[in-house]
Amino acid sequence: MEYSYPIDIDWTKEEVTVVIQYFQAIEKAYEKGIDAEELKSRYRAFKKVVPSIGEEKRLGREFEKESSYSAYQVMQLVKNATTSSIKMKP
């Protein structure tokens, strides 16, 4: 797909990498499915870079606008998951 990831110009290269990896995990949940623990691990790393809930929501909305993938919906599914893998229905 051709879209950009929401990033902050004040982040370090490592922080940008962490945020992109999180959004790539969201993509994977939609496209192929992802291990729930891997997704949770990416989210924990993401929250170290973006601790603010407001900022998390803003970035999630920007990502959804670009990609049509909802980080919020994926995280709700993983929060309530009863299986070890997550696959979003299109």
Rank of each mutant, 00 (worst) to 15 (best):
M1L: 12
M1H: 10
E2D: 09
Y3C: 10
Y5N: 02
Y5W: 06
P6A: 11
D8G: 06
D8A: 11
D8W: 03
D10H: 11
W11L: 10
W11P: 01
W11Q: 10
K13T: 15
K13E: 15
K13F: 10
E15W: 01
E15V: 02
V16I: 12
T17E: 14
V18K: 04
V18I: 13
I20H: 04
I20F: 04
Q21R: 10
Q21F: 10
Q21N: 15
Y22M: 07
Y22I: 03
F23E: 01
Q24D: 07
Q24C: 04
A25K: 05
A25Q: 01
I26K: 02
I26S: 01
E27P: 08
E27T: 01
K28H: 03
Y30S: 00
E31R: 07
E31P: 02
E31F: 02
E31Y: 07
K32R: 11
K32V: 12
G33Y: 09
G33D: 14
G33E: 15
I34K: 09
I34R: 03
E38T: 06
E38M: 07
L39T: 03
K40D: 14
S41R: 08
R42F: 08
R42L: 03
Y43F: 15
Y43T: 03
Y43R: 14
A45D: 13
A45T: 06
F46I: 08
K47S: 06
K47D: 00
K48E: 13
K48M: 06
K48Y: 02
P51I: 12
S52A: 06
S52P: 01
I53T: 09
I53W: 02
I53L: 12
G54F: 11
E55L: 08
E56F: 09
K57I: 13
K57Y: 14
R58C: 05
R58H: 13
G60L: 00
G60W: 00
G60Y: 11
R61E: 15
E62Q: 13
F63Q: 04
K65T: 14
E66F: 07
E66C: 03
E66W: 06
S67L: 03
S67W: 08
S67I: 00
S68G: 06
S68C: 04
Y69H: 12
A71T: 02
A71L: 02
Y72F: 15
Q73G: 00
Q73P: 01
V74L: 07
V74Q: 07
Q76P: 00
Q76T: 01
Q76I: 14
L77Q: 14
V78S: 09
V78H: 10
N80H: 05
A81R: 12
T82S: 15
T82F: 08
T83R: 11
T83M: 08
T83V: 05
T83K: 15
S84I: 10
S84M: 06
S84D: 12
S85V: 00
I86K: 03
K87V: 10
K87I: 08
M88Q: 11
M88P: 06
P90H: 15
P90C: 13
P90E: 15
